[in-house]
Amino acid sequence: MVRSAALRLARLSLNSRGREFGSYATILPKEPFVWGISHITPRSVPTHIARPPYAGGSSALQDVGGKIELGGIAERRVRAAAKLARDVRELASTLVQANVTTNELDAVVHKYIVEHSAYPSPLLYSGFPRSCCTSVNNIIAHGIPDDRPLEDGDIVNVDITVYLDGYHGDTSQTFLVGHVDEPGQELVKVTNEALEAGIDACGPGRPFREIGKAIHDLIREKDFSISPEFRGHGIGTDFHRKPWIIHGLNDGPEIMMPGHCFTIEPAIIQGNNPTCWIFPDGWTASTEDCARSAQAEHMVLITENDAQVLTR
């Protein structure tokens, strides 16, 4: 449910937002509130396309020990899924412009994915009603595509995941819509630098905690914070699984080993309040004070010799 105190704070923050975080449209839930997502009709997927188990499909595939078996069909398939996800992300980048609705963007993304014999992984995942996530300005993650047109000055994260031949490919990027102010441009720039810092910390035999430390070290002197609510995750035949990737300081003992395949996806927020609250739809996560958030995501595969970015 919507926390009334959080909504009051969000409304009050509109008076100071321009001075603190820049000039942009604040995204708040529409009133009167519609609770849940049962009023949203999911898009259809042709019956010949294989679906993940949560969407009514069956899964005979299983990654041994939660890792990708290197050098064989599993690695080829996860690389193919990652490549398709990258291609869809690049398609989305060409669609992001003022006056285009995120629902229109979702429709094009959906069509492209199914035309490539893949399933849009977000669709029906825990009931999610759309084929990608679109998170605008103060939305941290899990924004549901809707009929609000993008505006000049917005930033929007488009989160793409596809399910192809039994494997998921996952990536996202935050795009600038038209003329974004300097604070917004800096936020997106630092977010991509944070992602690259996390990737640079990867390699066989290295602790997963070094990813979070690298991101922390990058932004600790800046006026940004790391969302603790949203983590990277293992990926393969499952959409989400271990290892869980923490983007801030942590003391996790796990070590990266050949075959580990996972996402790094830091959500970086303006200011020092990383608290979030959830819209009445049960999905859309906003910053508490309406500061902007940006996110960027890549898939990383640990091999015997290095860490390879599959969605570059």
Rank of each mutant, 00 (worst) to 15 (best):
V2T: 07
S4E: 14
L9D: 09
A10V: 04
A10P: 09
L12R: 13
S13F: 02
S13Y: 02
R19I: 06
E20A: 10
E20Q: 11
F21V: 05
F21I: 01
L28I: 10
P29G: 04
P32Q: 09
P32M: 06
P32D: 04
F33W: 14
V34P: 02
W35F: 14
S38L: 09
H39N: 15
H39C: 01
I40D: 02
A50F: 00
P52A: 00
P53D: 00
A55I: 00
G57F: 02
G57V: 01
A60F: 07
I68C: 09
I68M: 03
L70Y: 05
G71N: 01
I73N: 09
R76E: 15
R77P: 05
A81I: 03
A82D: 10
K83L: 14
L84I: 06
V96P: 08
Q97L: 08
Q97A: 14
A98P: 11
N99H: 14
N99I: 01
V100E: 13
N103W: 12
D106V: 08
V109P: 12
Y112Q: 10
Y112P: 03
V114I: 15
S117Y: 09
A118V: 07
P122E: 02
G127V: 07
G127R: 10
P129N: 04
P129H: 08
C132I: 09
V136Q: 13
I139L: 14
I140L: 15
A141R: 12
D146E: 14
D146K: 04
D147N: 15
D147S: 15
P149V: 11
L150G: 12
L150T: 10
D152R: 05
V156M: 11
N157P: 00
T161Y: 05
G166T: 11
H168P: 09
D170Q: 06
D170K: 08
Q173D: 14
T174F: 09
T174K: 07
F175S: 06
F175Q: 10
V180N: 12
D181Q: 12
D181A: 13
K189E: 13
T191V: 07
T191A: 03
A194L: 07
E196F: 03
A197P: 04
G198R: 05
C202Q: 04
R206T: 00
I215F: 01
S227V: 00
S227L: 00
F230D: 01
G232W: 01
G234Q: 02
I235A: 00
D238H: 06
P243M: 01
P243G: 03
W244F: 12
I245K: 04
I246T: 14
I246W: 07
L249C: 01
N250H: 11
D251K: 08
E254R: 12
I255P: 02
M256P: 06
P258W: 09
G259F: 08
H260V: 05
H260C: 07
C261R: 10
F262H: 08
E265Q: 15
P266E: 11
Q270S: 10
G271A: 12
G271W: 07
C276A: 14
C276H: 13
C276T: 15
I278F: 04
G282D: 13
G282R: 11
W283P: 09
T284C: 11
T287E: 06
T287M: 08
C290E: 12
A296I: 04
E297M: 15
V300T: 05
I302P: 12
T303H: 08
T303F: 09
N305G: 09
N305L: 03
L310S: 05
